[in-house]
Amino acid sequence: MSRPRSMRQNARGYLLTFPAFAFLVVFFVGPLIVNLFESVKNEDGGLTYAQYVRALGDAYYLEVLGDTIVLSLAVTIASLVLGYPLAIAIARSRGALKSFLIFLVVTPLLINVVVRTFGWMVIFGRSGFINAILKLLDLDTATLTGTWTGIGIAMVQVLLPFMVLSIASTLEGIDGELEDAAITLGATPLKTIIHVIFPLSLQGVITGTLLVFALSMGSFVTVMLMGSNSTMVLPLLVYQQLNLASDWPFAAALGNILIFVVLIATALQLGLAKRGVRR
C-alpha cells in the first residue's frame, strides 16, 4: 500500500470517528475531569486535599471503603466459581439446550436491578418465601434482609450474567478439538478443564472478573433497598452525601476514591494476566 493512500485512509477514518470521539470527550472525559477539580477546590478557588484527608483519615469512611472492597471481592469470586461451569455449558451445548441457557443468562440481565432486588426482598423477607418453607418444616424463621449475606446473594444474582457472558464468549473461540485431543490422550474431563480449557479461557476470566468487580464497586441499589444501618457501601454513601447532605465536594472526593480503587484493581489484574501469558 502506497503512502498517500494510507494517509487518505487515516484522514477518512478520523473524520468518520470524530463525532463519536468528540461527544465522549465532552460528555464523558470532561465530566470526570470536572469531578476531579470539584474535589480539590476550596471556597476561594485554591487547591486543597482536605476532602481526601477527611475521607481517608476517618475510621468510619475507611471501614465503609473496606466493607465495599470485601463485598465486591466476595461477589466477584462467587460469580466466577458459580458462573464458570455455566459458561462451559453454554459454549459446548447446541440447539434447544443452548438457547435455553442463553435465555437463562440474558433474561435476568434485562430485568431491572430494582425489580430483582425486590424479588430477593420477598424471598428473604419476614413473611417471605424462605420463611414460608421454614414454617412448613416447623423451623424457626429467620431473615437475611439487612445482612451482608443477603445483599451478597442478591448481588451475585444481579452480576453473574456478566461473568458468564464474558467467559462464554472466550470459550466459544477455543477449538473443541483441543479438548477432544486431551480426552483421547487419557485426561479426565476435570483434568481437561483445569489444564486445557481454563488456561485458554483466561482472557474471558479476566474480562469477567474486572467487569463484575467494577460493577459491584459501583452498585448501590441493592444495599439501598436491602441494607440496614450496619451495611453501608461507598457508592451509597456518595449518593447520600450528594442528595441528603448536599456536600458536593466531599461526594466528588469519595467518588474519585471509588474510581481509584477500580483502576488499581484493573492494573493489578492486567499485570497478573501479562505474567500468566508470558509463562
Binding site: T107, V115, R116, G119, I123, A154, Q157
Partner: peptide, 8 residues
C-alpha cells in the same frame, strides 16, 4: 437466576 423474577 430465575427465582426472584418469578416471585415478583
Amino acid at each position: 437466576l430465575l427465582l426472584p423474577q418469578l416471585i415478583v
